[in-house]
Structure formats: structure tokens, C-alpha cells
């Protein structure tokens, strides 16, 4: 038996495959990653003492917040605020999704616009996404005044930033065959997009739109913190006035609604997209 065929070598072959020595550059990368993590922790004032002292304070808050405020008048007021929150989310998401389609057509490469237009629109969409929804709400509060309309506009813009990009990506990735067949018969670009590209991307559009709706519902619950309507203002007032039972009621209502929307959205996604073979 030769050395190469020895049982030790057989074992060593598998052991070596399991552990691979990192290259010098990889090692430096890992080390740099660790340094960055510690730098960030130092920057946020990470403190084990504070973490250790948090549970008693949290227990104190919980004791003062429970039971939640279930007074019928309070529940009625919060219920209407939640309805307003959902109105902001639905109206904003639907308008945002509709406006995202033409924006995405301009952003998608090789459809109806040239590369310069694609790049400019994509940069615009990146800018929209880079600004948080709460900041857009502040901008629209200044522009149109306090209230749910400012919140809806913030959701519209936020949805365009999200759906515009993903719709464009979906259209770029869709099967090019049907589009080529229509192009070969002399169809215009707009006709090709309307008859082949958009129908081909529809399942992805529906999925993205449902995610946008979930995102809009989550966002709309906090827009009230800056005066842009919805139930968020009740949360802020509850904490400002140390009315923790009412604040807890708001938190539980938000949780129930957001989880409910996610469940309905997941069901709708499976139902609609699952029909396609």
C-alpha cells in the first residue's frame, strides 16, 4: 500500500476539506469587520450594566401598563384612529403602486427609454428610498399641513421608491420570448410592453404590491408621531402623559392589525400567484 492510499491520508483528505486556512486578505477583512463592530458598539454607548438594569425597569413599565385601557370610549376613539391609519395605508399604497408602473417602465433597461433615462430614474428612486418615510411625512406636513393627507402623500412617495425599483427589476427579468415574438411582427415598444412584458411580470408585481401594502400599514402607524395622521399620535400622547395603559392598548392594536394584514397578504399572495402554473 502506498502512502497516498493509507487510511490516514483518506481521513486527512476529508479533514482538510472541512477547515480552510483564510488568505491574508480574508484574515484582514475579518479583523477589520470585528474592529468596525466594536467601534459601532462604542459609538452607541453599549453598556452591560444598562442591559442588566433594564429588566426591572421594563417590569415596572409592564406593571403600570397592564391591564391595557379597555374603556369603551377610549377603544372607540382608538378604533377610529386605527381606521384612519388603514385609510392612509391603503390609499397611499394603491396610488403609489399605480404611479410606480410608469416610473418603473422608465427605469427598466431595454424597454421604452434609453440608458440615460433609466439611470436618472433609478437614481431618483434610490434617493426616495434613502429618505425614511417619517422624514417624508415631516416634509409633507410642512407642504400640506398637519393631518392624514400628509401621511398618505408620504406613503405614496415611499411606495413609489420601493415598487418603482422592484417593478423595474421584475420587468427586466421577465421572459423575453413573448416580447421578441411581438417585436418581430412590427408591434411598437409600448404595445410590446403592455401585451408581453407587463402581463409576464404580473405575478411579481402582485407579490411586490402586497409587500408594499404591509410596509405601508407598518409605516402609517408611526406617522402620527410627526403629526401626519393615524394612530401614532395616540401612542405619543400616551407616553407623554405617562398614560401607559392607553399606550399599551395602542401597541396591542397596532400589533393585531399589522399581523392580520400580513396574514391576509400572505394568503392573497398564495391564492393569486399560486394559480399560475
Amino acid at each position: 500500500m502506498t502512502d497516498n492510499a493509507s487510511p490516514w491520508n483518506e481521513r486527512a483528505r476529508f479533514e482538510l476539506a472541512r477547515f480552510e486556512r483564510p488568505s491574508a486578505i480574508s484574515f484582514l477583512g475579518y479583523a477589520l469587520g470585528l474592529v468596525v463592530i466594536f467601534w459601532c458598539l462604542a459609538g452607541v454607548g453599549f453598556s452591560v450594566e444598562k442591559v442588566a438594569s433594564a429588566p426591572p425597569r421594563f417590569a415596572d413599565f409592564a406593571a403600570r401598563a397592564f391591564p391595557p385601557n379597555l374603556d369603551p370610549q377610549v377603544l372607540s376613539r382608538l378604533g377610529w384612529k386605527m381606521v384612519e391609519t388603514l385609510q392612509i395605508a391603503f390609499a397611499g399604497a394603491v396610488i403609489g403602486v399605480i404611479l410606480s408602473v410608469p416610473v418603473a417602465l422608465l427605469a427598466a433597461k431595454g424597454l421604452i427609454a434609453g440608458p440615460w433615462v433609466n439611470q436618472i430614474v433609478r437614481t431618483g428612486l434610490s434617493f426616495i428610498r434613502a429618505v425614511p418615510d417619517i422624514a417624508w411625512a415631516l416634509v409633507f406636513v410642512v407642504a400640506v399641513g398637519l393631518g392624514p393627507f400628509a401621511g398618505m402623500l408620504a406613503i405614496v412617495i415611499d411606495t413609489i421608491g420601493f415598487c418603482g425599483r422592484f417593478f423595474a427589476d421584475d420587468m427586466e427579468a421577465t421572459d423575453k420570448g413573448p416580447a421578441e415574438s411581438l417585436t418581430a411582427t412590427g408591434a411598437r415598444k409600448l404595445d410590446v410592453v403592455a401585451c408581453a412584458t407587463i402581463p409576464g411580470s404580473l405575478p411579481a408585481f402582485i407579490s411586490t404590491s402586497l409587500f408594499a401594502l404591509e410596509k405601508a400599514v407598518r409605516s402609517s402607524t408611526i406617522l402620527g408621531l410627526v403629526g401626519a395622521g393615524g394612530i401614532g399620535i395616540e401612542l405619543k400622547v400616551g407616553f407623554d402623559l405617562f398614560d401607559y395603559p392607553t399606550a399599551m392598548t395602542v401597541i396591542l392594536m397596532i400589533a393585531v392589525v399589522v399581523i392580520g394584514i400580513e396574514l391576509v397578504s400572505g394568503w392573497a399572495r398564495t391564492k393569486i400567484i399560486g394559480e399560475q402554473r
Partner: peptide, 19 residues
């Protein structure tokens, strides 16, 4: 486009729009 309006294409994969 006018030229292609007088042309038809049948591909290996039928290339119909599924939905």
C-alpha cells in the same frame, strides 16, 4: 415596424403570454 408587420415568427418555445 411596417416591414415587420408583413412578417411572422414562430419560436421553438411558443412564447405565448401565459396569463
Amino acid at each position: 415596424r411596417n416591414m415587420r408587420a408583413q412578417v411572422g415568427l414562430v419560436s421553438q418555445k411558443h412564447n405565448l403570454v401565459p396569463r
